[in-house]
C-alpha cells in the first residue's frame, strides 16, 4: 500500500506545518486523510466537519493552496504528486490547527441584512411567486449557498479590505433583493453599497471559480451594483 505525505498546519496564526504519512486508499477524500491523522496518528489535531457529504459546509480548508470542501475533494484530484498540504481557510482567524473562527464571516451576513424580512402575518394569503419569473430565476441562481466560507477565503479583496462584506454575504443579500415577499430592500441596499460593500469587488471572480456549489457571487454582486447605483442616482440610498 502506498503512502501519502501530508503537511498539516499546527498552531494558530503563528505555527508550522507538521508532516504525517497516511496510507493511500481507494476513493479517499481529503477529509478521510485528516480524520485518519486525528484518529490514528495525533488525537490533538483540531479540525471541523459534520455531514461528510457536502451538505453542511463545515469542513472547508485550504488544500494545496486552494480553498475546498475536504469531504468532496478526492485525493486523486489533488494529490497526484503523493503530497498534500492542508491549512485552515484564509482570511479568517485561526482558532487552532485547521479550525477557523467564522464569527466575522457570519456577522457580515447580518451586516448585509441577510435576514428575511417579511411584511405579512399568518392571517394573510400565501405569496404566489411564479417559478419562471425573472426575479425568482435570479434568486434561484444564488440561493443554494450553504455558508462554507470557500468564496470568502478565496477573495483577495477580503484580504486587502477587512471591512469588505465578502462574496457570500453579498450573494445572500442579492437573493433577498429578488424575493418578492421581502420588505427590507431599501435598508439592505444602503447596507451593501459603498467601500465596504459591493463596490469594493474587483471582479477577480475567484469566488465564482472556487464555489463548490457553482454559484456565481460575482454575478450577484454585479446585480447589487446596478441596483445601488440606480438608488443612489434617485437619491434613495441613505446610510445603512
Amino acid at each position: 500500500m502506498s503512502t501519502l505525505c501530508v503537511a498539516v498546519w499546527r498552531g494558530q496564526e503563528s505555527g508550522r506545518f507538521q508532516e504525517f504519512d497516511v496510507p493511500r486508499r481507494e476513493s479517499q477524500t481529503v477529509l478521510d486523510v485528516v480524520t485518519y491523522i486525528q484518529r490514528s496518528l495525533d488525537p490533538t489535531l483540531a479540525y471541523r466537519f459534520a455531514c461528510r457529504v457536502g451538505m453542511c459546509g463545515s469542513c472547508a480548508m485550504t488544500v494545496n493552496g486552494r480553498a475546498r470542501w475536504t469531504c468532496r475533494t478526492h485525493v486523486d484530484k489533488v494529490g497526484e504528486s503523493g503530497r498534500l498540504e492542508i491549512a485552515p481557510l484564509h482570511n479568517l482567524p485561526v482558532v487552532r490547527d485547521l479550525v477557523t473562527d467564522m464569527t466575522d464571516f457570519f456577522d457580515k451576513w447580518a451586516r448585509a441584512r441577510g435576514q428575511f424580512q417579511g411584511g405579512t402575518t399568518r392571517k394573510d394569503e400565501f405569496a404566489r411567486v411564479a417559478p419562471d419569473s425573472p426575479a425568482r430565476r435570479l434568486a434561484d441562481a444564488a440561493i443554494e449557498c450553504i455558508g462554507c466560507g470557500v468564496c470568502y477565503s478565496a477573495c483577495d479583496v477580503v484580504a486587502w479590505n477587512p471591512a469588505y462584506l465578502g462574496p457570500a454575504a453579498l450573494n445572500r443579500a442579492w437573493t433577498l433583493m429578488n424575493d418578492a415577499r421581502d420588505t427590507g430592500n431599501r435598508a439592505r441596499l444602503a447596507a451593501v453599497a459603498g467601500d465596504a460593500g459591493c463596490h469594493a469587488c474587483h471582479t477577480h471572480m475567484s469566488c465564482s471559480e472556487r464555489c463548490p456549489k457553482q454559484i456565481a457571487p460575482t454575478a450577484s454582486i454585479a446585480g447589487l451594483k446596478r441596483a445601488t447605483i440606480a438608488a443612489a442616482l434617485r437619491g434613495d440610498l441613505g446610510d445603512g
Binding site: 444602503a190 453599497a193 459603498g194 467601500d195 460593500g197 463596490h199 451594483k225 445601488t228 447605483i229 443612489a232 442616482l233 437619491g235 440610498l237 441613505g238 446610510d239 445603512g240
Partner: peptide
C-alpha cells in the same frame, strides 16, 4: 454611502 457609490 451615497457619495461612495457616486464616486464608483
Amino acid at each position: 454611502v451615497r457619495t461612495q457609490v457616486l464616486l464608483w
